[in-house]
Design a protein around this nucleic acid. Structure first.
Length: 268
DNA sequence: ATGGCCGGTGGAACCGGA
């Protein structure tokens, strides 16, 4: 079972590039982030015609996540538990019914910038950065809850976290950024410490592998990237992991997203 | 990580992104 994550930065803008990649990569399941569309406006027919079941959790203008799957999807839920008043569409779950059932959670973790700093140099945990860290705490609670089921779990998406220095071409410039602050990286490690395996790092112990290159300042041409799109696996899913790759070439295609797909192969 | 972009909104600038 091939499961991918892809921040498409707008479904309307990627209406050609996304089907092209699906045709070439043929994932069984793909979690999309930043669909930037309400559910009613998502062009589901295009993907249904390609054999995918389509489940969306969108909103107007920003954010929005979706799951496309060639295999049946069951028990679809929308929204990250822990704050019923959160209007931002950043979380969707579904159980993929293959040889082995896999619970797939697609997520678009808040960016968190800009960050304010106190006179002592510490980041102020408020505003957008406060929302990011609170969201990560909510996610941790949801992950812990799901782990009690002992099923194969995949948490994939745009985490907006650079885990380590080797995951950025120029780590020094990110020192005061919400994607790389110690508090963000600690919260990411706290997720891993629940017992999750970060699929790419588990299989590729090489630095300088990125999933995002900014549109500005020739970042792609200079390979000035960061690795922020991740797939985290429960022990039951990690036992089935046979491969994990970044589809870097997608960034060099026509009208690309600023992110590229990352995928795993599970023996499931 | 900014000189340099892009997408969405709404019909011109502006916000949000990372």
């Amino acid at each position: 079972m091939k499961i991918a994550t892809f921040n498409i930065n707008g479904i309307k803008a990627r209406i050609e590039a996304l089907p092209e990649w699906l045709e070439a990569a043929r994932p069984d399941v793909v979690c999309l982030q930043e669909i930037k569309s309400v559910d009613e406006a998502f062009p589901r027919e295009i993907f249904e015609a390609m054999g995918y079941n389509v489940e969306t959790h969108g909103q107007k203008s920003f954010n929005g996540v979706a799951i496309l799957s060639r295999l049946p999807l069951e028990d679809v839920t929308r929204g990250l538990p822990g704050d019923e008043d959160d209007p931002q569409a950043r979380w969707i779950e579904a159980t993929v019914v293959g040889k082995t059932a896999v619970r797939v959670c697609g997520l678009y973790l808040p960016n968190g910038n800009p960050v304010d700093f106190a006179p002592d140099g510490q980041p102020v945990i408020a505003g957008k950065y406060g929302y990011k860290l609170a969201w990560m705490a909510r996610m941790r609670a949801r992950v812990a809850d799901l782990l009690t089921s002992e099923e194969a779990l995949v948490f994939c998406g745009d985490y907006n976290v650079i885990p380590q220095a080797e995951d950025a071409a120029k780590p020094e410039v990110w020192a005061k950024d919400a994607l790389y602050l110690p508090q963000s990286r600690e919260a990411f490690r706290r997720l891993l410490n629940l017992g999750l395996t970060e699929a790419f790092r588990a299989r590729n112990p090489v630095p300088g592998q990125y999933t995002f290159w900014d549109y500005q300042a020739g970042a792609w041409e200079r390979n000035n990237g960061i690795r922020i799109d991740h797939l985290l696996l429960s022990p039951q899913a990690a036992d089935l992991l046979t491969d994990c790759q970044i589809d870097k070439a997608v960034r060099g295609g026509d009208k690309p997203s600023d992110h590229v797909p990352v995928w795993i192969e599970l023996d499931a």
